Amino acid sequence: MCDIPDVSSPEVIVKFHIEAYGPQRTRAGESFNAQPDGSSAAWFRVDKDLSGTEVKVHLGSTVVPGDISGNLVTVKVPLAVHSKPGLIPVVLEIVDGVNITKSDSVTITVDSQ
């Protein structure tokens, strides 16, 4: 019998850090970093070049694809994510085969109007 690795459970590795991001605070339901289509956007500067990778951005329980330019990741933030006051934990994730590489976690604070 040969040893075949179990690929059904990816290995989670924390290998990069969010150095700066914005917004760190916003008001419930208000647009921030407004885009031409009216949506809001957030940005994250990390400590490594992510060019050539695919990044998923976890905004609480919502996962959206990130746009990458070197060590900068930007993402459109759905209104449902920041429509109510609270804390939104954010983690960036790269999935490469059977490995998941995650960033450390940061928080966006959503204040009441």
Results as ranks from 00 to 15, higher is better:
residue 91 V to G: 01
residue 71 N to F: 04
residue 29 G to A: 08
residue 47 D to M: 15
residue 53 T to N: 11
residue 81 V to Y: 04
residue 107 T to N: 13
residue 21 Y to H: 15
residue 80 A to L: 15
residue 101 T to C: 10
residue 27 R to F: 10
residue 75 V to E: 01
residue 106 V to N: 03
residue 31 S to A: 12
residue 101 T to R: 10
residue 39 S to W: 10
residue 8 S to Y: 14
residue 66 G to T: 05
residue 35 Q to W: 07
residue 89 P to W: 06
residue 75 V to I: 05
residue 112 S to T: 10
residue 4 I to M: 10
residue 49 D to T: 02
residue 88 I to S: 01
residue 78 P to I: 06
residue 25 R to L: 13
residue 25 R to I: 14
residue 20 A to R: 09
residue 12 V to Q: 09
residue 61 S to C: 05
residue 92 L to A: 09
residue 61 S to H: 07
residue 11 E to A: 12
residue 11 E to C: 08
residue 10 P to T: 11
residue 26 T to Q: 06
residue 108 I to N: 00
residue 65 P to M: 05
residue 5 P to V: 14
residue 97 G to R: 02
residue 81 V to F: 05
residue 110 V to M: 05
residue 109 T to S: 13
residue 38 G to K: 07
residue 79 L to K: 11
residue 57 V to Q: 00
residue 28 A to G: 07
residue 110 V to Q: 02
residue 76 K to V: 05
residue 39 S to D: 12
residue 52 G to N: 08
residue 43 W to D: 04
residue 89 P to Q: 08
residue 84 K to N: 13
residue 107 T to F: 09
residue 62 T to S: 14
residue 70 G to N: 11
residue 13 I to D: 10
residue 108 I to R: 02
residue 33 N to P: 02
residue 63 V to R: 11
residue 104 D to Q: 05
residue 37 D to E: 12
